[in-house]
Write a protein that binds this DNA or RNA. Structure first.
Lengths: 217, 217
DNA sequence: GCATGTGAATTCATTCACAGCT
DNA sequence: AGCTGTGAATGAATTCACATGC
Protein backbone atom coordinates (compact mmCIF):
# COMPACT_ATOMS: atom_id res chain seq x y z
CA UNK A 1 0.00 0.00 0.00
CA UNK A 2 1.30 3.41 -1.01
CA UNK A 3 0.24 6.82 0.13
CA UNK A 4 0.18 9.71 -2.27
CA UNK A 5 -0.50 13.09 -0.76
CA UNK A 6 -2.15 11.29 2.10
CA UNK A 7 -4.36 8.98 0.05
CA UNK A 8 -4.12 5.23 0.31
CA UNK A 9 -3.56 3.47 -2.97
CA UNK A 10 -4.42 -0.22 -2.88
CA UNK A 11 -2.96 -2.93 -5.08
CA UNK A 12 -6.40 -3.33 -6.64
CA UNK A 13 -6.40 0.29 -7.72
CA UNK A 14 -2.95 -0.17 -9.25
CA UNK A 15 -4.19 -3.25 -11.04
CA UNK A 16 -7.19 -1.41 -12.45
CA UNK A 17 -4.97 1.41 -13.69
CA UNK A 18 -3.21 -1.19 -15.83
CA UNK A 19 -6.57 -2.31 -17.16
CA UNK A 20 -7.63 1.26 -17.97
CA UNK A 21 -4.32 1.81 -19.69
CA UNK A 22 -4.94 -1.13 -22.01
CA UNK A 23 -8.57 -0.28 -22.56
CA UNK A 24 -7.71 3.30 -23.50
CA UNK A 25 -5.44 1.92 -26.23
CA UNK A 26 -8.39 0.00 -27.63
CA UNK A 27 -10.63 3.07 -27.47
CA UNK A 28 -7.92 5.13 -29.13
CA UNK A 29 -7.75 2.61 -31.96
CA UNK A 30 -11.53 2.69 -32.25
CA UNK A 31 -11.28 6.43 -32.80
CA UNK A 32 -12.75 7.76 -29.56
CA UNK A 33 -11.55 11.15 -28.41
CA UNK A 34 -13.32 11.23 -25.09
CA UNK A 35 -14.73 8.55 -22.85
CA UNK A 36 -16.95 8.65 -19.78
CA UNK A 37 -16.38 6.76 -16.55
CA UNK A 38 -19.48 4.78 -17.47
CA UNK A 39 -17.98 3.67 -20.79
CA UNK A 40 -14.78 2.58 -19.10
CA UNK A 41 -16.69 0.83 -16.34
CA UNK A 42 -18.98 -1.06 -18.70
CA UNK A 43 -16.09 -2.50 -20.63
CA UNK A 44 -14.25 -3.64 -17.51
CA UNK A 45 -17.31 -4.79 -15.58
CA UNK A 46 -16.78 -2.14 -12.93
CA UNK A 47 -18.90 0.74 -11.64
CA UNK A 48 -18.44 4.28 -12.94
CA UNK A 49 -17.82 5.43 -9.37
CA UNK A 50 -14.97 2.97 -9.07
CA UNK A 51 -13.31 4.34 -12.18
CA UNK A 52 -13.68 7.94 -11.06
CA UNK A 53 -12.43 7.16 -7.56
CA UNK A 54 -9.39 5.33 -8.90
CA UNK A 55 -8.43 8.26 -11.09
CA UNK A 56 -9.24 10.84 -8.44
CA UNK A 57 -6.38 9.55 -6.27
CA UNK A 58 -3.95 10.95 -8.78
CA UNK A 59 -5.54 14.17 -9.97
CA UNK A 60 -8.37 15.57 -12.04
CA UNK A 61 -8.23 14.26 -15.56
CA UNK A 62 -11.77 14.74 -16.80
CA UNK A 63 -14.09 17.49 -17.86
CA UNK A 64 -17.51 17.66 -16.22
CA UNK A 65 -20.24 17.01 -18.69
CA UNK A 66 -17.80 15.59 -21.20
CA UNK A 67 -15.69 12.79 -19.84
CA UNK A 68 -11.99 12.02 -20.12
CA UNK A 69 -9.75 12.73 -23.11
CA UNK A 70 -8.67 9.28 -24.31
CA UNK A 71 -5.14 9.93 -25.52
CA UNK A 72 -4.26 12.31 -22.75
CA UNK A 73 -5.64 10.12 -19.98
CA UNK A 74 -3.71 7.18 -21.35
CA UNK A 75 -0.52 9.21 -21.23
CA UNK A 76 -1.26 10.34 -17.68
CA UNK A 77 -1.84 6.78 -16.52
CA UNK A 78 1.42 5.73 -18.18
CA UNK A 79 3.16 8.35 -16.07
CA UNK A 80 1.41 7.27 -12.89
CA UNK A 81 2.25 3.61 -13.43
CA UNK A 82 5.76 4.56 -14.47
CA UNK A 83 5.73 3.03 -17.93
CA UNK A 84 6.47 6.26 -19.75
CA UNK A 85 10.15 5.36 -19.48
CA UNK A 86 12.45 2.44 -20.23
CA UNK A 87 13.32 0.02 -17.46
CA UNK A 88 16.46 -2.08 -17.20
CA UNK A 89 15.47 -5.65 -16.48
CA UNK A 90 17.51 -8.77 -15.78
CA UNK A 91 16.29 -12.33 -16.03
CA UNK A 92 17.63 -15.08 -13.78
CA UNK A 93 17.03 -18.60 -15.06
CA UNK A 94 16.68 -19.33 -18.74
CA UNK A 95 14.57 -22.49 -18.57
CA UNK A 96 11.14 -22.86 -20.10
CA UNK A 97 9.56 -19.89 -18.39
CA UNK A 98 12.61 -17.68 -18.87
CA UNK A 99 12.72 -18.47 -22.58
CA UNK A 100 9.06 -17.66 -22.95
CA UNK A 101 9.67 -14.31 -21.29
CA UNK A 102 12.59 -13.38 -23.51
CA UNK A 103 10.44 -14.02 -26.56
CA UNK A 104 7.47 -12.10 -25.18
CA UNK A 105 7.13 -9.18 -27.55
CA UNK A 106 4.79 -7.09 -25.40
CA UNK A 107 7.71 -6.72 -23.05
CA UNK A 108 9.96 -4.79 -25.38
CA UNK A 109 7.01 -2.74 -26.57
CA UNK A 110 6.17 -1.71 -23.02
CA UNK A 111 9.67 -0.46 -22.40
CA UNK A 112 10.98 -3.43 -20.45
CA UNK A 113 14.47 -4.10 -21.73
CA UNK A 114 15.99 -7.38 -20.74
CA UNK A 115 19.64 -6.38 -20.54
CA UNK A 116 21.07 -9.40 -18.77
CA UNK A 117 20.31 -13.09 -18.52
CA UNK A 118 21.77 -15.38 -15.84
CA UNK A 119 21.85 -19.10 -15.30
CA UNK A 120 23.92 -21.57 -13.31
CA UNK A 121 24.03 -24.25 -16.02
CA UNK A 122 27.47 -24.32 -17.66
CA UNK A 123 25.92 -25.52 -20.91
CA UNK A 124 23.78 -22.41 -21.10
CA UNK A 125 26.35 -19.86 -19.95
CA UNK A 126 27.84 -18.09 -22.96
CA UNK A 127 24.90 -18.95 -25.24
CA UNK A 128 22.65 -16.24 -26.66
CA UNK A 129 18.89 -15.77 -26.46
CA UNK A 130 17.39 -13.15 -28.74
CA UNK A 131 20.81 -11.57 -28.93
CA UNK A 132 21.37 -11.50 -25.16
CA UNK A 133 24.26 -13.45 -23.70
CA UNK A 134 23.69 -15.77 -20.76
CA UNK A 135 25.97 -15.00 -17.81
CA UNK A 136 27.05 -17.08 -14.88
CA UNK A 137 24.76 -16.42 -11.92
CA UNK A 138 27.89 -16.28 -9.77
CA UNK A 139 28.41 -12.75 -11.11
CA UNK A 140 24.82 -11.72 -10.44
CA UNK A 141 25.32 -9.10 -7.78
CA UNK A 142 28.17 -7.21 -9.39
CA UNK A 143 26.60 -7.20 -12.85
CA UNK A 144 23.21 -5.98 -11.62
CA UNK A 145 25.06 -3.02 -10.20
CA UNK A 146 27.21 -2.40 -13.23
CA UNK A 147 24.27 -2.41 -15.63
CA UNK A 148 21.95 -0.39 -13.40
CA UNK A 149 19.31 -3.07 -13.34
CA UNK A 150 16.07 -1.86 -11.74
CA UNK A 151 13.87 -4.95 -11.99
CA UNK A 152 14.81 -8.61 -11.77
CA UNK A 153 12.69 -11.50 -12.97
CA UNK A 154 13.40 -14.71 -11.10
CA UNK A 155 12.57 -17.86 -13.06
CA UNK A 156 14.62 -20.48 -11.28
CA UNK A 157 13.53 -23.67 -9.47
CA UNK A 158 11.97 -23.16 -6.06
CA UNK A 159 14.98 -24.42 -4.14
CA UNK A 160 17.27 -21.80 -5.71
CA UNK A 161 14.90 -18.86 -5.57
CA UNK A 162 15.52 -17.45 -2.09
CA UNK A 163 19.27 -17.45 -2.67
CA UNK A 164 18.87 -15.54 -5.90
CA UNK A 165 16.48 -13.09 -4.26
CA UNK A 166 18.96 -12.44 -1.47
CA UNK A 167 21.67 -11.56 -3.99
CA UNK A 168 19.28 -9.35 -5.93
CA UNK A 169 18.30 -7.49 -2.78
CA UNK A 170 21.95 -7.18 -1.75
CA UNK A 171 22.66 -5.60 -5.14
CA UNK A 172 20.17 -2.88 -4.27
CA UNK A 173 17.43 -3.87 -6.70
CA UNK A 174 14.03 -2.98 -5.27
CA UNK A 175 11.61 -4.77 -7.59
CA UNK A 176 11.35 -8.49 -8.19
CA UNK A 177 8.94 -10.60 -10.21
CA UNK A 178 9.16 -14.26 -9.24
CA UNK A 179 7.88 -17.34 -11.01
CA UNK A 180 9.21 -19.67 -8.35
CA UNK A 181 6.51 -21.70 -6.61
CA UNK A 182 7.90 -20.95 -3.15
CA UNK A 183 7.43 -18.35 -0.46
CA UNK A 184 10.09 -15.67 -0.70
CA UNK A 185 11.28 -13.18 1.90
CA UNK A 186 12.31 -9.66 1.02
CA UNK A 187 12.87 -6.59 3.19
CA UNK A 188 9.92 -4.23 3.30
CA UNK A 189 11.47 -1.65 0.97
CA UNK A 190 11.57 -4.23 -1.83
CA UNK A 191 8.48 -4.91 -3.93
CA UNK A 192 7.97 -8.57 -4.74
CA UNK A 193 5.27 -9.98 -6.99
CA UNK A 194 4.88 -13.70 -7.46
CA UNK A 195 3.23 -15.55 -10.29
CA UNK A 196 2.34 -19.15 -9.64
CA UNK A 197 0.39 -21.01 -12.27
CA UNK A 198 -0.42 -23.88 -9.93
CA UNK A 199 -2.14 -21.49 -7.52
CA UNK A 200 -4.20 -20.00 -10.35
CA UNK A 201 -5.25 -23.51 -11.29
CA UNK A 202 -6.31 -24.12 -7.72
CA UNK A 203 -8.68 -21.16 -7.87
CA UNK A 204 -10.32 -22.93 -10.78
CA UNK A 205 -10.55 -26.30 -9.06
CA UNK A 206 -11.92 -24.64 -5.95
CA UNK A 207 -14.76 -23.16 -7.97
CA UNK A 208 -15.36 -26.37 -9.91
CA UNK A 209 -15.46 -28.29 -6.66
CA UNK A 210 -17.58 -25.88 -4.67
CA UNK A 211 -19.95 -24.24 -7.08
CA UNK A 212 -22.55 -26.91 -6.60
CA UNK A 213 -22.71 -25.56 -3.06
CA UNK A 214 -23.65 -22.06 -4.19
CA UNK A 215 -26.30 -20.48 -2.05
CA UNK A 216 -28.18 -17.31 -2.74
CA UNK A 217 -29.73 -17.14 0.70
CA UNK B 1 -17.44 -15.23 -4.51
CA UNK B 2 -18.83 -18.53 -3.30
CA UNK B 3 -21.13 -19.24 -0.41
CA UNK B 4 -20.72 -22.35 1.66
CA UNK B 5 -23.42 -23.03 4.21
CA UNK B 6 -24.18 -19.33 4.11
CA UNK B 7 -20.61 -18.09 4.53
CA UNK B 8 -18.96 -15.88 1.95
CA UNK B 9 -15.67 -17.19 0.65
CA UNK B 10 -13.54 -14.53 -1.00
CA UNK B 11 -10.91 -15.08 -3.65
CA UNK B 12 -8.30 -13.97 -1.13
CA UNK B 13 -9.33 -16.75 1.22
CA UNK B 14 -9.06 -19.25 -1.62
CA UNK B 15 -5.64 -17.89 -2.46
CA UNK B 16 -4.47 -18.24 1.12
CA UNK B 17 -5.72 -21.81 1.28
CA UNK B 18 -3.29 -22.56 -1.55
CA UNK B 19 -0.52 -20.94 0.46
CA UNK B 20 -1.37 -22.94 3.57
CA UNK B 21 -1.43 -26.09 1.50
CA UNK B 22 2.12 -25.47 0.31
CA UNK B 23 3.35 -24.38 3.70
CA UNK B 24 1.94 -27.49 5.35
CA UNK B 25 4.01 -29.57 2.94
CA UNK B 26 7.13 -27.75 4.13
CA UNK B 27 6.18 -28.24 7.77
CA UNK B 28 5.48 -31.90 7.09
CA UNK B 29 8.95 -32.27 5.59
CA UNK B 30 10.43 -30.48 8.59
CA UNK B 31 8.84 -33.11 10.78
CA UNK B 32 6.12 -31.12 12.50
CA UNK B 33 3.05 -33.00 13.62
CA UNK B 34 1.02 -30.06 14.79
CA UNK B 35 1.11 -26.37 14.02
CA UNK B 36 -0.58 -23.34 15.56
CA UNK B 37 -2.33 -20.58 13.68
CA UNK B 38 0.48 -18.34 14.91
CA UNK B 39 3.14 -20.54 13.32
CA UNK B 40 1.28 -20.58 10.02
CA UNK B 41 0.68 -16.84 10.19
CA UNK B 42 4.30 -15.97 10.95
CA UNK B 43 5.57 -17.88 7.95
CA UNK B 44 3.08 -16.29 5.59
CA UNK B 45 3.21 -12.81 7.07
CA UNK B 46 -0.42 -12.97 8.11
CA UNK B 47 -2.19 -12.72 11.45
CA UNK B 48 -3.17 -15.82 13.45
CA UNK B 49 -6.77 -14.61 13.42
CA UNK B 50 -6.72 -14.53 9.63
CA UNK B 51 -5.56 -18.12 9.47
CA UNK B 52 -8.18 -19.32 11.93
CA UNK B 53 -10.95 -17.39 10.20
CA UNK B 54 -10.00 -18.78 6.79
CA UNK B 55 -10.11 -22.34 8.06
CA UNK B 56 -13.26 -21.77 10.12
CA UNK B 57 -15.28 -21.22 6.94
CA UNK B 58 -14.85 -24.88 6.13
CA UNK B 59 -15.04 -26.61 9.47
CA UNK B 60 -13.17 -27.18 12.72
CA UNK B 61 -9.79 -28.68 12.06
CA UNK B 62 -7.83 -27.81 15.18
CA UNK B 63 -7.63 -28.82 18.79
CA UNK B 64 -7.79 -26.09 21.43
CA UNK B 65 -4.58 -25.77 23.31
CA UNK B 66 -2.74 -27.82 20.71
CA UNK B 67 -3.11 -26.46 17.20
CA UNK B 68 -3.74 -28.16 13.88
CA UNK B 69 -2.54 -31.63 12.83
CA UNK B 70 -0.19 -30.93 9.92
CA UNK B 71 -0.78 -33.93 7.68
CA UNK B 72 -4.49 -34.10 8.31
CA UNK B 73 -5.05 -30.37 7.76
CA UNK B 74 -3.11 -30.54 4.51
CA UNK B 75 -5.35 -33.35 3.31
CA UNK B 76 -8.47 -31.43 4.33
CA UNK B 77 -7.34 -28.35 2.45
CA UNK B 78 -6.60 -30.48 -0.61
CA UNK B 79 -10.21 -31.64 -0.49
CA UNK B 80 -11.55 -28.13 -0.05
CA UNK B 81 -9.53 -26.77 -2.95
CA UNK B 82 -10.39 -29.83 -5.00
CA UNK B 83 -6.88 -31.06 -5.68
CA UNK B 84 -7.37 -34.45 -4.10
CA UNK B 85 -8.37 -35.71 -7.54
CA UNK B 86 -7.07 -35.66 -11.11
CA UNK B 87 -8.26 -33.00 -13.51
CA UNK B 88 -8.44 -33.26 -17.29
CA UNK B 89 -6.82 -30.22 -18.80
CA UNK B 90 -6.44 -29.02 -22.39
CA UNK B 91 -3.98 -26.46 -23.65
CA UNK B 92 -4.76 -24.17 -26.57
CA UNK B 93 -1.73 -22.57 -28.18
CA UNK B 94 1.66 -24.24 -28.09
CA UNK B 95 3.88 -21.19 -28.42
CA UNK B 96 6.46 -20.11 -25.87
CA UNK B 97 4.11 -19.95 -22.92
CA UNK B 98 2.30 -23.14 -23.89
CA UNK B 99 5.56 -25.03 -24.20
CA UNK B 100 6.69 -23.82 -20.81
CA UNK B 101 3.42 -25.08 -19.34
CA UNK B 102 3.68 -28.52 -20.86
CA UNK B 103 7.15 -28.90 -19.34
CA UNK B 104 6.06 -27.63 -15.94
CA UNK B 105 6.51 -30.60 -13.68
CA UNK B 106 4.54 -29.27 -10.73
CA UNK B 107 1.52 -29.57 -12.94
CA UNK B 108 1.56 -33.33 -13.30
CA UNK B 109 2.43 -33.70 -9.64
CA UNK B 110 -0.59 -31.66 -8.61
CA UNK B 111 -2.91 -33.85 -10.60
CA UNK B 112 -3.35 -31.60 -13.61
CA UNK B 113 -3.19 -33.84 -16.66
CA UNK B 114 -2.77 -32.11 -19.97
CA UNK B 115 -4.68 -34.47 -22.19
CA UNK B 116 -4.98 -32.38 -25.33
CA UNK B 117 -3.00 -29.66 -27.06
CA UNK B 118 -4.40 -27.43 -29.81
CA UNK B 119 -2.90 -24.95 -32.24
CA UNK B 120 -3.88 -23.37 -35.54
CA UNK B 121 -0.41 -23.55 -37.08
CA UNK B 122 -0.25 -26.31 -39.69
CA UNK B 123 3.44 -26.81 -38.98
CA UNK B 124 2.70 -27.62 -35.36
CA UNK B 125 -0.41 -29.75 -35.87
CA UNK B 126 0.53 -33.41 -35.71
CA UNK B 127 3.74 -32.79 -33.79
CA UNK B 128 4.23 -34.07 -30.26
CA UNK B 129 5.08 -32.26 -27.03
CA UNK B 130 6.02 -34.41 -24.06
CA UNK B 131 4.17 -37.24 -25.73
CA UNK B 132 1.01 -35.26 -26.41
CA UNK B 133 -0.10 -34.73 -29.99
CA UNK B 134 -1.00 -31.25 -31.21
CA UNK B 135 -4.48 -31.08 -32.72
CA UNK B 136 -6.06 -28.61 -35.08
CA UNK B 137 -7.94 -25.98 -33.10
CA UNK B 138 -10.76 -26.39 -35.61
CA UNK B 139 -11.73 -29.53 -33.72
CA UNK B 140 -11.58 -27.83 -30.33
CA UNK B 141 -15.21 -27.99 -29.29
CA UNK B 142 -15.89 -31.60 -30.21
CA UNK B 143 -12.65 -32.91 -28.73
CA UNK B 144 -13.09 -31.08 -25.43
CA UNK B 145 -16.37 -32.90 -25.12
CA UNK B 146 -15.06 -36.27 -26.18
CA UNK B 147 -12.18 -36.20 -23.71
CA UNK B 148 -14.18 -34.78 -20.81
CA UNK B 149 -11.93 -31.79 -20.42
CA UNK B 150 -12.71 -29.82 -17.28
CA UNK B 151 -10.16 -27.01 -17.46
CA UNK B 152 -8.75 -25.22 -20.49
CA UNK B 153 -5.57 -23.17 -20.54
CA UNK B 154 -5.60 -20.49 -23.23
CA UNK B 155 -2.14 -19.43 -24.39
CA UNK B 156 -2.88 -17.87 -27.77
CA UNK B 157 -2.25 -14.33 -29.02
CA UNK B 158 -4.65 -11.70 -27.75
CA UNK B 159 -6.51 -11.35 -31.02
CA UNK B 160 -7.44 -15.04 -31.06
CA UNK B 161 -8.26 -15.43 -27.38
CA UNK B 162 -11.94 -14.43 -27.27
CA UNK B 163 -12.77 -16.76 -30.16
CA UNK B 164 -11.11 -19.66 -28.41
CA UNK B 165 -12.84 -18.83 -25.14
CA UNK B 166 -16.22 -18.79 -26.88
CA UNK B 167 -15.63 -22.28 -28.24
CA UNK B 168 -14.45 -23.51 -24.87
CA UNK B 169 -17.55 -22.15 -23.19
CA UNK B 170 -19.76 -23.62 -25.91
CA UNK B 171 -18.16 -27.00 -25.23
CA UNK B 172 -19.43 -26.74 -21.66
CA UNK B 173 -16.08 -26.23 -19.96
CA UNK B 174 -16.49 -24.08 -16.86
CA UNK B 175 -12.92 -23.20 -15.91
CA UNK B 176 -10.41 -21.25 -17.99
CA UNK B 177 -6.92 -20.01 -17.28
CA UNK B 178 -5.85 -17.38 -19.78
CA UNK B 179 -2.42 -16.01 -20.57
CA UNK B 180 -3.73 -13.69 -23.26
CA UNK B 181 -3.11 -10.01 -22.54
CA UNK B 182 -6.68 -9.03 -23.41
CA UNK B 183 -9.97 -8.64 -21.64
CA UNK B 184 -12.09 -11.73 -22.02
CA UNK B 185 -15.84 -12.21 -21.59
CA UNK B 186 -17.34 -15.36 -20.14
CA UNK B 187 -20.82 -16.12 -18.84
CA UNK B 188 -21.13 -15.88 -15.08
CA UNK B 189 -21.19 -19.63 -14.51
CA UNK B 190 -17.69 -19.92 -15.98
CA UNK B 191 -14.64 -19.20 -13.83
CA UNK B 192 -11.92 -17.31 -15.67
CA UNK B 193 -8.50 -16.46 -14.26
CA UNK B 194 -6.07 -14.36 -16.23
CA UNK B 195 -2.32 -14.16 -15.90
CA UNK B 196 -0.65 -11.19 -17.48
CA UNK B 197 3.05 -10.72 -16.94
CA UNK B 198 3.02 -7.18 -18.24
CA UNK B 199 0.48 -6.17 -15.60
CA UNK B 200 2.60 -7.72 -12.87
CA UNK B 201 5.54 -5.71 -14.15
CA UNK B 202 3.44 -2.58 -13.96
CA UNK B 203 2.81 -3.17 -10.27
CA UNK B 204 6.57 -3.10 -9.86
CA UNK B 205 7.10 0.06 -11.89
CA UNK B 206 4.27 1.73 -10.01
CA UNK B 207 6.01 1.08 -6.73
CA UNK B 208 9.42 2.06 -8.08
CA UNK B 209 7.94 5.27 -9.43
CA UNK B 210 5.85 6.20 -6.43
CA UNK B 211 7.63 4.94 -3.37
CA UNK B 212 9.58 8.14 -3.01
CA UNK B 213 6.18 9.66 -2.30
CA UNK B 214 5.52 7.41 0.68
CA UNK B 215 3.98 9.22 3.59
CA UNK B 216 3.52 7.94 7.07
CA UNK B 217 1.33 10.82 8.16
C1' DG C 1 -1.82 -22.85 30.29
C1' DC C 2 -2.44 -22.83 25.61
C1' DA C 3 -4.58 -22.25 21.25
C1' DT C 4 -8.98 -22.70 18.73
C1' DG C 5 -13.36 -20.81 17.05
C1' DT C 6 -16.19 -16.94 16.51
C1' DG C 7 -19.21 -12.82 17.37
C1' DA C 8 -18.03 -7.87 17.76
C1' DA C 9 -15.15 -4.12 16.45
C1' DT C 10 -12.31 -2.16 13.26
C1' DT C 11 -10.18 -1.15 9.03
C1' DC C 12 -10.27 -1.02 4.23
C1' DA C 13 -12.63 -0.91 -0.39
C1' DT C 14 -16.53 0.14 -3.00
C1' DT C 15 -20.69 2.46 -4.05
C1' DC C 16 -24.01 6.22 -3.40
C1' DA C 17 -25.54 10.59 -4.16
C1' DC C 18 -25.08 15.11 -5.08
C1' DA C 19 -22.71 19.65 -5.54
C1' DG C 20 -20.17 21.82 -9.09
C1' DC C 21 -18.49 22.66 -13.64
C1' DT C 22 -19.00 22.65 -18.99
C1' DA D 1 -28.39 18.12 -19.75
C1' DG D 2 -24.33 15.48 -18.93
C1' DC D 3 -20.56 13.82 -16.36
C1' DT D 4 -16.83 14.62 -13.05
C1' DG D 5 -15.02 14.76 -8.36
C1' DT D 6 -15.67 13.63 -3.72
C1' DG D 7 -17.48 13.39 1.10
C1' DA D 8 -20.76 10.21 3.26
C1' DA D 9 -22.77 5.65 3.46
C1' DT D 10 -22.45 1.05 2.79
C1' DG D 11 -20.36 -3.33 2.34
C1' DA D 12 -16.48 -6.54 2.64
C1' DA D 13 -12.29 -8.22 4.71
C1' DT D 14 -9.41 -8.33 8.57
C1' DT D 15 -8.38 -8.08 13.32
C1' DC D 16 -9.67 -8.06 18.21
C1' DA D 17 -10.81 -10.23 22.23
C1' DC D 18 -12.66 -13.64 24.79
C1' DA D 19 -15.45 -17.75 25.90
C1' DT D 20 -14.60 -22.51 25.20
C1' DG D 21 -12.25 -26.80 25.38
C1' DC D 22 -8.07 -29.73 25.63
Amino acid sequence: MVRITGKRISESTIHRLSLYYRLLKVLQDEGYETVSSKDLADREKLTPAQVRKDLSFFGQFGTRGLGYPVTELRQQIAEIIGINKKWNVALVGIGNVGSALVSYKEFQKQGFHIKLIFDNDQRKIGSFHKGIEVHDVVNLRQMLNKYNIEIVIVAVPGAAAQGVVNEVVAAGVNAILSFAPTNLRVPSHVTLRSENMAIEMEHLTFHLTNENLYYTA
